[in-house]
Design a protein around this nucleic acid. Structure first.
Lengths: 193, 193
DNA sequence: TTTAAAAATTAAACTAGTTTAATAAATTAT
DNA sequence: ATAATTTATTAAACTAGTTTAATTTTTAAA
């Protein structure tokens, strides 16, 4: 039916009975995105939390000079949103769009709040998801502070080998915090070795 | 009693009755730290989550060249730990020490797990705490990707004016990801304006 | 209160990463 | 299939931030 992946994702941390599972699924809406299509624009209210079934998205900003900076990629089995905007229902700081044709499942804030009320186990689930995301982000901050661009690139392709295959170098550079020109130079230098 | 601050901190997001409050407090241990004292060393197992009642701590790494990189400061009303090590009980990636004489309240992993079981509302509490921390970290990542050191410094003193007063420039530089020498140059340039 | 140690300042030489611009290669659209 | 657009490459000039080192100021220790 297409809910297998998300149920599996949730089963990693909490066990749901049939009623709970059905209730949860009833709160989801599915959506497809063409490559390049926006899920969220800067200034929009982020109305939903998104679970990716298929495809690849990016969460990013565009600075005053028009340069893009990617705070996260999302692929199959990941949750993405502008969490600040989602929680506060204030205008979003980030943009989200699809880097590939994608399929997602969405849950609105109202429905997620209802889910927390009716199935409090989901508090635990999202606590754990957030713990993992927090740890990953902290490590990324540390790496941005302590490593050269070359080391960050090497760590990136080591940590996400499959993801790197799916991304253009421009996107990788926007994630690493360097220019595409410099990434190209780094790669040349690395293959020469 | 010294528990006022932490109870207030928790009351922001969940309501506890007398029994729950007493149970929670029974799980806490208090500890004082002298300036410079370690709470956690790289490679230790992080056995406790720490709530700061008074003082200032830092969570950081030391790179192969001996330079320190600060991933977070903690002051009154903040929670600090090496979350990865705390959750997995594996050796810590980070060091934590006191930048001022400090007082903290500690809860062990076993006790926190018991707390989640007996008072599931705490799942919600820590979910919300983590949401806030996640959002703050994501904004910091974005800023590291998109702003110059000068802009990051200006944003830092604007966002944490009270904190900046308590820190040496060396610590601020280690948080911003620049050398103390360069921070000194920036400050001179800024006062001249 | 004096001494020692750490933090901050300044300047000059240096380098990691940027910018600009031109060309080639790969994707996308018609 | 062709044209148009985007992405990647390369090189040269440039700049934000580093490094080293010497001096001053502040903080901590005895």
């Amino acid at each position: 039916m297409g809910f297998d992946l998300i149920l599996q994702n949730i089963a990693r941390y909490i066990q749901l009975n049939k009623t709970e599972t059905d209730f949860f699924i009833s709160l989801l809406r599915s959506k497809t995105l063409k490559k390049g299509e926006y899920l969220l624009r800067h200034g929009d209210i982020c109305k939903v939390e998104n679970f990716i079934i298929k495809g690849c998205l990016r969460v990013y900003t565009i600075d005053e000079n028009g340069f893009e900076h990617i705070v996260m990629f999302g692929i199959e089995n990941w949750w993405v949103s502008d969490l600040y905007s989602f929680l506060t229902q204030m205008p979003a700081d980030y943009l989200i769009d699809a880097l590939e044709d994608s399929e997602i499942l969405q849950i609105t804030k109202e429905n997620l709040d209802r889910l927390y009320e009716k199935v409090p186990k989901f508090e635990r689930f999202f606590r754990i998801i957030l713990q993992n995301a927090y740890i990953a982000q902290q490590n990324r901050i540390n790496q941005n502070l302590s490593s050269t661009a070359e080391q960050r690139y090497l760590d990136f392709i080591k940590k996400y080998p499959q993801l790197e295959q799916r991304l253009s170098q421009k996107q990788v550079a926007a994630y690493l915090g360097i220019t595409p020109v410099f990434l190209s130079m780094l790669r040349r230098k690395l293959v020469k070795k």
